[in-house]
Amino acid sequence: MSYIDFEQFSEVDIRVGRIISVEAFPEARKPAYKLTIDFGSSIGTKRSSAQITDNYSPDDLVGKLVLAVCNLRPKRIAGFVSEVLVLGVPDENNNVVLVSPDKEVPIGGKLY
Rank of each mutant, 00 (worst) to 15 (best):
Arg29Val: 01
Lys30Ala: 10
Pro31Phe: 03
Ala32Asp: 00
Tyr33Leu: 09
Ile37Thr: 01
Ile37Cys: 10
Ile37Asp: 03
Asp38Pro: 04
Phe39Ala: 14
Phe39Lys: 11
Gly40Cys: 12
Gly40Glu: 07
Ser42Trp: 06
Gly44Tyr: 08
Thr45Asp: 10
Lys46Ser: 09
Lys46Arg: 15
Arg47Ile: 15
Arg47Trp: 08
Ser48Arg: 03
Ser48Gln: 09
Ile52Ser: 03
Ile52Val: 12
Thr53Pro: 02
Asn55Asp: 13
Tyr56Pro: 00
Ser57Arg: 07
Asp59Gln: 12
Asp60Lys: 14
Leu61Thr: 05
Leu61Pro: 00
Gly63Gln: 09
Gly63Val: 04
Lys64Glu: 09
Leu65Pro: 01
Val66Glu: 02
Leu67Lys: 03
Leu67Phe: 14
Cys70Ile: 02
Cys70Ser: 08
Cys70Asn: 07
Leu72Glu: 11
Arg73Cys: 06
Arg73His: 11
Pro74Lys: 15
Arg76Asp: 08
Ile77Leu: 04
Phe80Lys: 03
Glu83Asp: 11
Val84Ile: 14
Val84Asn: 00
Leu85Gly: 04
Leu87Tyr: 08
Gly88Arg: 04
Val89Gly: 09
Asn95Ile: 03
Val97Pro: 01
Val99Thr: 13
Val99Cys: 15
Asp102Pro: 06
Lys103Asn: 08
Glu104Pro: 09
Glu104Met: 14
Val105Ala: 09
Pro106Met: 06
Pro106Phe: 06
